[in-house]
Design a protein around this nucleic acid. Structure first.
Lengths: 147, 147
DNA sequence: GTCATTTAGTCAGGGCACTGACTATTTCGG
DNA sequence: CCGAAATAGTCAGTGCCCTGACTAAATGAC
């Protein structure tokens, strides 16, 4: 025996929360564009001309994963990538017209989805929820990156 | 412009929480055995002779993913799989001796890791955290699976 | 000014997670 | 009993996510 109740393990709960979120995202936001793809588009919207590495920093993805996600967005013609003339190592990212349109559309839907996702909680609980997750994640991140 | 602050999006936070957890898991529990693999071992410990589909139900994984994870545990000789003589469609799962030992060892370490992960929160906050995540996930799950 | 170091991006490889199509087996209706 | 429907597992395909090794470009120390 000696089995454990996984519903007390935050890691297990985090995985289930993400599954639940993905399900809802597909149903209410988009079946084509995933949530990480949207996050990248959002970062480029906030700071057009960002390079891949910095985008990764903004949305919490490593270089390899950003490259994959960026590749998919380019294939869908939502994103453009040009060499930085100032620094030949970098690629500068920018949304296409269609990319900007798509981002705007998904932003509206994502807001609605977030409301549905958090609906089971009261108003103060919702703020608390976001705050608690953020504190735990940030603490763990600085734990790895010894400032 | 019109970019959004992702740190208010629970989906984004869930992803970051999982990343933080994985990092800590690798550092404090095991670099060999992943957290989903441990979850499967734990389910089989609780109910030896479970079939794959039910294991998936217990740990929130679909059939395909369970098959992959089970395959890896078998390759490592932590798990055994035999056809159910009663029902030729099923495979019955059982930990090997080494699997049971490994599960016990990781259980101790996972408990320590959970303490570290939740350390930034006060005692009541920790309970609240677990409760809030659980409520949100469960609500979203029943939303898709119309009982 | 040249060489060592750092940096941005790519690629191979491993693991998680889902869908949809397929196979084999069981079960159920008649 | 027999054929249809349901069920357990597999497989192919897509996407996310990381590490470690590699290439090309820029930077910095001398």
């Amino acid at each position: 025996m000696a089995a454990v109740d996984l519903t007390t393990h935050p890691g297990h709960l985090a995985r289930r929360l993400q599954q639940a979120h993905t399900l809802l995202w597909n149903a209410m936001v988009s079946e084509e564009i995933t949530s990480p793809q949207y996050a990248v588009m959002n970062a480029v919207t906030a700071e057009p001309g960002l390079d891949q590495r910095t985008v990764g920093e903004r949305v919490s993805l490593d270089r390899s994963t950003v490259a994959e996600v960026v590749g998919r967005l380019i294939r869908r013609e939502l994103l453009d990538k040009v060499r930085d003339p100032q620094d030949g190592r970098r690629y500068l990212l920018r949304l296409t017209e269609e990319g900007a349109r798509t981002h705007r559309r998904l932003t509206v839907r994502a807001a609605r989805m977030n409301q549905v996702l958090l609906a089971p909680l009261g108003t103060e609980e919702q703020d608390l929820f976001v705050d608690l997750i953020r504190r735990v994640s940030e603490a763990a991140e600085t734990l790895r990156r010894p400032v």
